[in-house]
Simulated scan of single mutants.
Amino acid sequence: MTQPPPSPIQPARPSLPPAESWLVGVPNPAQQRQDGYAVAAFATSLPGLVPIAVVLAGVALRRVKRAGGHGKRLAYGALAVSLCWVIAIGVAVTLNLIGDYRRGIGRTVSISQVDVGRCFDADLEAEALRLVRIADCAAPHTGEAYAKVTAALVGLPAAQTGAVATQQCAGAFAEFVGKSYESSDLDMYYVVLEDRAVADGNVLCLVGMPGTRLTGTMRGSQR
């Protein structure tokens, strides 16, 4: 009896699909990396480089949207940090402006309204000093009111009035600047507020230097 030919051996299980098909839906390494622009945007936002951070974040968001990948959260984080910086700077500027307003900086007033310790802008070479503009002592300015002194000037002739007022202001000058008026390169001025002597002083003493703008208070400057 003739034996039937052996049947071909059947595989015990179906053949595996090609290896490439296993990668469907699995992100490749390039897609797993954070977008470089997003990383740069977040890094520049931290020290407050707001314009650069905003531009980089915008580029990163466009790149992620177009090509996919990661970095959207970093880009939005950079925008959030930049917004915080803008708010903080705005608050600081507002508070500084409020402080300047309260101190009267930028306001034009009569010289008689200038308090001791105030810096101002004015023409110190004018024949009469009537109006001045209050200035920030930290910024360049022309003069500073450093003292009010008491001098009995009633009935004195003009020449003697000047001598008495100058002598009184010279004593306060040395105490304020830290150097005598005679050895200082600064100039001294005075404004008679009223002739009669009063407790809080009737002569306002000023320090400045015509043709030169001062920066910072002259208190203790030894100039």
Rank of each mutant, 00 (worst) to 15 (best):
R33N: 02
L61P: 03
L56G: 05
W85Y: 15
F176K: 03
A174K: 02
L83V: 11
S82C: 13
G71D: 01
Y76S: 01
A159F: 02
W85K: 08
L97N: 10
R223W: 10
K179E: 11
D200V: 14
A172W: 03
V132T: 09
E175P: 01
P4I: 08
L74I: 05
Y37T: 01
L206D: 03
G104P: 05
R102F: 00
A53Y: 15
F42P: 04
G171Q: 13
R223T: 04
V177F: 03
Q113C: 08
V116W: 04
V59C: 01
K179Y: 08
V50S: 12
Q10C: 07
G162H: 06
G117N: 07
A38N: 04
C119V: 05
G25M: 11
A163S: 15
A122T: 12
S110T: 12
Y76Q: 04
R66H: 06
V86I: 15
K179Q: 12
L153Q: 05
L124K: 14
P14W: 00
C137F: 14
R63Y: 02
R219T: 05
R63H: 02
N96D: 07
A165D: 11
G48S: 13
V198Q: 14
A128T: 12
T212E: 12
L46P: 01
I105A: 00
G216Y: 07
A53L: 10
V114E: 01
L97V: 06
Y181F: 14
T161W: 03
A19R: 06
F42A: 14
A197Y: 07
A60S: 13
V86W: 07
R13Y: 06
L206K: 01
Q167F: 04
V55E: 10
L214I: 11
G68F: 00
S184V: 09
V177W: 09
P6D: 01
L74G: 05
V81D: 10
Y190R: 02
A197W: 03
V26T: 14
F42D: 00
E127Q: 09
T142L: 08
A165W: 00
A78Q: 10
L79R: 11
V91I: 11
G155K: 07
A43T: 13
A170G: 00
W22S: 15
I105Y: 03
K179L: 15
V91M: 04
V191C: 01
L186H: 04
E125V: 10
L156D: 12
G71A: 08
V116G: 02
G162E: 10
Q113P: 00
S180Q: 13
A30G: 04
G90L: 13
A159H: 06
P14S: 07
V154S: 11
I105K: 01
G220E: 02
E20F: 03
G99F: 02
V55W: 08
S82R: 04
A12G: 13
I111W: 05
R73G: 00
P29A: 07
A122Q: 08
V81K: 03
A135N: 06
